[in-house]
Design a protein around this nucleic acid. Structure first.
Lengths: 152, 152
DNA sequence: GAGTAATACTTGCGCGCGCAAGTATTAGCC
DNA sequence: GGCTAATACTTGCGCGCGCAAGTATTACTC
C-alpha cells in the first residue's frame, strides 16, 4: 500500500539507519578495547595515511567532516597523552600541523584492526567478496569529490 | 603500496564518511526550510508510518537508534508546539504513547519531500535506477534484523 | 607599501544526547 | 498475596561539538 516515491530518498534513509546502528556498535567496541572514541580513531587513521604523518588542522576538520573548533578541542587531550604533537609551519605562521607520534601510530593501527574485526564479524555471514566490493564502490561514489578518503 | 586488508573495513569507513557528509548537507537544508532537525524528521516519519500514527517512546528510541532519555527530551518541545501528543495506555500504566497530530503529519510529509529533493539532486548525476536500487538493497541488508526500517 | 580581504586557529556559549540513578508500574515466582 | 525482577519513563550531570566572535597571520589590490 506504500508507494515507492523516491529511490534516492530510500538510499538516504537506509544509509542513515545503517550508519547510526554501526556507529553505536563500533564505538562501544573501540572504547572498551582501546579507550578510544570512533572519531579519535578516524583522526589517527587520517594522520597515519597522510604524507609524513602530519596534517593541518583545517584539513583534518575537512576529512573528519567536523568543525575546526571541534578538531581543536579533540586534539588537546591527545597531545597531552602524546599520541600526537603540534608543529608549526615555517612558511606560514597561521598553520600548526598535527603530527602523529609513535604511540599514536600504534594506536591507529591497533584501532583499525579491532574496527576491521568488528566489521568482519558483522559482515561475515552472507556477504560475498563481490557484495562488499560493490557496496564499497557505490558508497565511494557518494563521496567521490571529497578529499582524503580513508582506505583499509 | 597500500594493502587492502579488509574489504569489510573499507565498507565501514566509506559508510561513515558518506553518512557524515550527507548528514550535514541534509540537516542544513531541512533546518532552513522547515526549522526541523534531521532527527526530528526521522521521528515524525517513524510515527507517520506506524500503525495508528502512534508509538511507544521506547520503540521510538529503538528505531531512532538513540537513548530513551534522548527521546524524552526531543519530544518535549514537539509536544509544546502541537506536532505530537502524549496518550497513555489503559492496559499498562508505564507506557505513554507518542501520537502524531495533524500538523506533525503534514510536517513529516513535507520534510520527507524536501529530503527526497535533496537526495535526488545529490544522486541525479550518474546514478541509474539500478544503481540506486542495488545500493538500497545492500544497505538494507546491514540493518535487516532491526525493526521499523523507514521506506520512502 | 597601506588597506582590505581571506585564511588558520582558538575560545565562549549553548544544545543535543548518553549514562546512571530515581520513580512508577507490571510481571514472574514461591 | 508478597517479594524480587523487569520494564517504561524521567531527571541530574557531563561531554562532544557546532556557531559566532576574536586573534594572528598572510594574500590581494591599488
Amino acid at each position: 500500500m506504500r508507494r515507492m516515491n523516491s529511490p534516492s530518498l530510500n538510499v538516504v534513509l537506509r544509509l542513515i539507519r545503517a550508519q547510526s546502528h554501526l556507529q553505536n556498535r563500533f564505538a562501544a567496541a573501540l572504547g572498551g578495547v582501546h579507550g578510544l572514541s570512533l572519531n579519535e580513531l578516524m583522526l589517527l587513521m587520517h594522520l597515519d595515511q597522510a604524507a609524513g604523518g602530519r596534517l593541518r588542522r583545517v584539513d583534518l576538520a575537512e576529512r573528519l567532516e567536523m568543525s575546526q573548533s571541534g578538531v581543536t578541542r579533540m586534539l588537546a587531550p591527545m597531545e597531552k597523552v602524546g599520541w600526537v604533537a603540534r608543529a608549526e609551519d615555517v612558511r606560514d605562521g597561521r598553520v600548526s600541523y598535527v603530527e602523529l607520534r609513535k604511540a599514536g601510530r600504534r594506536l591507529a593501527r591497533e584501532g583499525a584492526n579491532t574496527l576491521a574485526a568488528q566489521a568482519e564479524s558483522l559482515l561475515a555471514g552472507e556477504w560475498t567478496a563481490q557484495d562488499l566490493d560493490l557496496l564499497a564502490r557505490l558508497l565511494g561514489r557518494l563521496t567521490a569529490t571529497l578529499p582524503g578518503q580513508l582506505t583499509a
